[in-house]
Amino acid sequence: MTDLISTVIAKYNYWIYITLMMIGLYAMIAKNNLVKKIVGMNIFQTAIILFYVSIGVKKGATIPILEHGHGPDAHHVVHAVDYINPLPHVLMLTAIVVGVATLGVALALAIRIYNNYNTLEEDEILAQIREK
């Protein structure tokens, strides 16, 4: 039992990431307002990006910028253990930009829906569609 508890506490960050993901998923499924659904989608996206960035972290490493790369005493021996892994950062940089693009499209669609139905609530929109 103490073994299990120590495992859970040692990996506390992963538990919080999963909690954030589930908050976003709950908002996407259960919220009635379209803007709230879009906020939930963004929370889900950033939680996944946070998970990926946290994979690249190393203990005792510094940010991925080469030390001693310039000047008269420049030498190019690179120890990978001294630097945080930059590959997830580069991939997630693209994911952030794509996330903002999807946010813009989603909000544009929400504005069009509001202009047509004069409401942002999902059940009112569905009731108006059924009436027609």
Binding site: V53, G56, I63, M92
Partner: peptide, 10 residues
Amino acid sequence: MGAVDVAFTE
């Protein structure tokens, strides 16, 4: 976490 590029993009 040391991901400065991701941080300022965000």
